[in-house]
């Protein structure tokens, strides 16, 4: 039963079969089973599957998120201290609605509310890295074990990263204007059910439009990898036996700016071609957490020293995660 849910409902294997049959009907069996046919099949299937899952998930997640606007998260977090607070910060990061556009006010708001730099950075690391939608999508492609592993190590990275930034005192290097202002708490704006549903719907449409291009590019790259690039090449460059595979993945993924939903199809194609599991996780994490646009944003509120420290800690953390998972890969596959 669990298997049925994962392969047919979340994995939509029936759709994959349908796309194949359709291609066979239209272009004949030789084409459908050939290289171009299966590339096309991967492209159509993945694009539709990710689209459907994404819309459904964003709607559900946004509905839950409507109970945790950042203004409320800030209030909740300001009641806790220490590593517990970092953990909570990382967890709240997974459910608080977040776009790169709101990272600056969020950073300023958290800091002015007296939240420690550790909590703020745990939040900032986990927010793009881990969310409920990504978890379900990962389950559909890689199975529940790998999806859980991704979420757990993502949260651990966020907690440890935040803790290091705080304990080393690096977290103090913020621009002076960030501290120069008072904390303003507003009464939590209560929404009724109709408003929550309309918020969820609007959020769904907005997110889909926003990530549409990323999915298209991601699935496109995925289908090229799927067929045009030989498995032996992927294995030798990104397989777990190549000691540099994780470094390659992080260096290639870090400057890229894409949503987790764009990174997943590429990861999926690499996974099917036997790239190392750790290498794939490292690639997804590097793409989502580190990007040039988000650094430019953060530069407005933190000094270069802190920005560099933040980047290095996250990169080193991702590399460690990558190598660890390549070593213990056999436990998951």
């Amino acid at each position: 039963m669990g298997n049925f849910i994962i392969t047919q409902i979340l994995g939509m294997q029936w759709l994959n079969q349908l796309v194949y049959n359709l291609l066979k009907l239209l272009f004949g069996e030789t084409f459908a089973t050939g290289n171009w046919g299966s590339s096309l099949q991967f492209f159509i299937f993945d694009f539709i599957k990710i689209g459907i899952l994404l819309c459904f998930l964003i709607f559900l997640v946004s509905y839950i998120q409507s109970y945790f606007p950042p203004e409320r998260t800030k209030k909740i977090l300001s009641k806790y201290k220490g590593v517990g607070a970092n953990t909570l910060g990382a967890l709240m990061g997974t459910i608080t609605p977040f776009c790169s556009c709101s990272s600056i006010p969020l950073f300023i708001g958290f800091t002015r509310a007296g939240l420690s730099s550790g909590v703020t950075f745990s939040f900032l690391i986990s927010s793009p890295l881990v969310d409920l939608g990504a978890f379900v999508l990962l389950t559909s492609i890689f199975g529940i074990k790998i999806a859980l592993a991704y979420v757990v190590v993502g949260l651990v990275l966020a907690v440890i990263g935040g803790t290091i930034i705080e304990k080393t005192g690096l977290g103090k290097h913020v621009e002076p204007f960030v501290l120069d202002g008072e904390n303003i708490d507003i009464d939590f704006i209560k929404l009724n059910q109709k408003e929550r549903l309309s918020y969820a719907k609007e959020q769904m449409i907005f997110t889909y439009k926003k990530v549409f291009l990323y999915i298209l590019i991601g699935v496109g790259i995925g289908s090229i990898i799927h067929n045009a690039i030989p498995q032996s090449f992927i294995e030798s460059v990104l397989g777990s036996n190549n000691p540099f595979s994780v470094l390659f993945a992080v260096i290639a993924g870090a400057p890229m700016y894409a949503d987790i939903f764009g990174a997943i199809p590429v990861a999926e194609a690499l996974f099917l071609k036997n790239a190392g599991l750790g290498t794939i996780l490292a690639f997804m994490m590097a793409v989502t957490t580190i990007s040039i646009p988000s650094f430019i944003m953060l530069k407005k509120v933190v000094k270069t020293k802190l920005l560099m420290a933040f980047g290095s800690i996250v990169i080193i953390g991702i590399i460690i995660i990558g190598y660890t998972f390549n070593l213990i890969e056999y436990l998951f596959i």
């Binding site: 606007p69 203004e71 709101s102 006010p105 969020l106 202002g181 507003i186 609007e202």
Partner: peptide, 29 residues
Amino acid sequence: TNEIMMYGVMSTPGLVINGKAVASGRLLS
């Protein structure tokens, strides 16, 4: 950003009526 934050709002879009924040973080129809 500073002025937005004066209303206690951390996520845009938002709406302020007579100096009080009545919506934040959602696009209003």
